[in-house]
Write a protein that binds this DNA or RNA. Structure first.
Length: 507
RNA sequence: CGGGGCGUGGCGCAGCCUGGUAGCGCGCCUGCUUUGGGAGCAGGAAGUCGGAGGUUCAAAUCCUCUCGCCCCGACCA
């Protein structure tokens, strides 16, 4: 077998996409499974991505007046019960704390729970109710509004089938919660935050997204309106990357967020909530990864460049390392996006394996530096968005002065690729048979990568929506904002329809 | 919760059917030789086979119970 044909990740995406995903995570050193069912250990290379996301979002949030705060991990059961739809939506996936002490029992091994709580505590699956309780105390007058709060937190949802980053029992996220005096202002906030998520996705993560509205059945439990950003992964399935909810007065009524208006009347506040999670990292992997591992967009990459000194002869060691160190210093003086250039130096003497490890980790730039290069005051540069062997020699000064430009090229190349992939696999379908064929794999036992996004008419009935879901596991991802209203016939029942929606299989 | 599968050095597996107290590959450590596309050779450390009970002279292997994990479905950021 020729070496060129060897991929760093086995199986390849085409061979077995879900398994490829697991292997990429392992090979890239982002995270690993933990001894706790459904929970993950996020390793430094992966956590750095989350740190960068936090940095970016904090800046974007704060520019709109949002402040960070922190609320309890535990929610009294009675709080969760306050909003009827909310209870129903989350009850099945709650972790419940019932005791506060462990005891040794005579004659038995180990510890048993003791000290039963009067009221069980829920480990937060989301914090609307506990934050609503605080809001109710913070608001007396319309002058106290709006309240614009975000918290960075871990939440627990006891999922049946966990997958690292995409669906874990515990995950990290931010949840924003706001309260407003008027409906219009709350709706404006809901849209504003969705725009921020679109910015994060497209400009930083290089993941193109479709913004839109969820159908009623896909709404957040208790919300009046749920907006979302949806992205297409390389197996052509949809991943919901962020949501922003207009909660109307539902939670204000449940939590008693009352205020006095300028007209001296009493009114319930209008609230919103919005969040993105570590799932974004899963989206990153599945949007940009290839058969050699992940590819990190420079703007959120854990580091930008790795320097790989090549020392064939021990006599060269000193001079090569001096050269590498000075290049490191010089590169670190430059910035890219909202942070300094981050440089890794890998001096391990493990031959070609070293190069491949960094390819698998997805670092944007690999720079090889050996005596031959130094003699010409040059470096040998590999871009992660190119083939592994497609390396070019460039002058050292050129690398330093053009590094931002190089990173920009990679960033926009990744976005461009992802965008054309989505366009290529987004189709208009107007008849039922084509629709069903589109979403049916050739092989049922071992389905190949198939389908994509369709833009098809939907009459608006839940009946059609659930029939399609039952027949094909295909759901309405969103009613896209960009779609102009147009008359047509429902893809399912043939009744008149006002608009096209996005259908896809989803994570 | 329904269907399927699996628990054996750090990781991936073989051995189980036909009981005789562990083996392979990768990784790791040491040395030498190598090094710009995933190194070679030699030596070495590391497991009592998920757990409990049973059958037996003897159990990774047979039986019972149990725990955990993975995959497919329903649920979901």
């Amino acid at each position: 077998m020729k070496k060129q044909e060897k991929t760093a990740i086995t199986p390849t995406r085409v061979e077995d996409y879900p398994e490829w995903y697991q292997q990429v995570i392992k090979a890239s050193d982002l995270a690993e499974r933990s001894p706790v069912r459904g929970c993950m250990v996020i390793k430094p290379w992966g956590y750095a991505l989350w740190e960068n996301i936090m940095k970016i979002l904090n800046d974007l949030f704060k520019a709109t007046g949002v402040k960070n705060a922190y609320f309890p991990l535990f929610i009294p059961l009675s709080f969760l019960e306050k909003e009827a739809e909310h209870v129903e939506g989350f009850a099945k996936e709650c972790a419940v704390v019932t005791h506060h002490r462990l005891e040794q029992v005579a004659g038995k091994k180990g510890l048993v729970p003791a000290g039963r709580l009067n009221e069980p505590l829920i480990v937060r699956p989301t914090s609307e109710t506990i934050i609503g309780d605080s809001f109710s105390k913070w608001v007396d007058s319309y002058r106290d509004l709006p309240i614009l709060i975000n918290q960075w937190a871990n939440v627990v949802r006891w999922e049946m089938r966990p997958r690292i980053f995409l669906r874990t029992s515990e995950f990290l996220w931010q949840e924003g919660h706001t309260a407003h005096a008027t409906k219009a202002e709350a709706i404006e906030r809901t849209n504003m935050m969705l725009d921020i998520y679109k910015t994060l996705s497209e400009e930083y993560l290089a993941i193109p997204v479709i913004t839109g509205r969820k159908s009623p059945s896909e709404r957040f439990p208790g919300a009046v309106d749920t907006l979302c950003i949806e992205a297409m992964m390389q197996d052509r399935k949809a991943l919901q990357c962020g949501t922003s909810h207009f909660l109307g007065q539902n939670f204000a009524k449940a939590s008693n967020i009352l205020f006095q208006t300028a007209q001296e009347t009493e009114a319930y506040a209008w609230t919103t909530s919005w969040g993105v999670s570590t799932r974004l990292i899963g989206g990153l992997i599945m949007t940009h990864g290839d058969d050699d591992g992940i590819i990190l967009p420079p703007k959120i990459s854990s580091a930008h460049v790795v320097l790989l000194p090549i020392i064939r002869n021990p006599d060269d060691k000193h001079s090569v390392m001096e050269y590498v160190k000075s290049l490191e210093r010089e590169l670190k003086e430059h910035s890219y996006g909202n942070r300094r250039i981050e440089v890794e130096v890998d001096t391990r003497d493990i031959g070609g394996a070293r190069n491949w490890e960094w390819i698998k980790k997805g670092i944007p730039l690999r720079v090889e530096i050996g005596p031959k290069d130094i003699a010409q005051n040059a470096v040998y540069v590999g871009r992660r968005d190119k083939r592994p062997n497609e390396k070019i020699s460039m002058k050292r000064n050129q690398l330093v002065s053009e590094i931002q430009d190089l990173l920009d090229q990679i960033q926009s190349n990744l976005f461009g690729r992802a965008m054309s992939f989505r366009k290529e696999h987004t189709v208009n379908i107007d008849d039922q048979k084509t629709f069903y064929d589109f979403f049916t794999p050739n092989s049922i036992e071992k389905p190949e990568i198939h389908g994509g996004f369709t833009q098809s008419h939907w009459c608006g009935s839940e009946k059609c929506e659930s029939k399609i879901k039952e027949d094909l596991s295909v759901t309405i991802r969103c009613l896209p904002f960009m779609a102009e209203p147009e008359a047509g016939r429902c893809i399912c029942c043939g009744e008149p329809s006002q608009r096209k929606v996005i259908f896809a299989k989803a994570y």
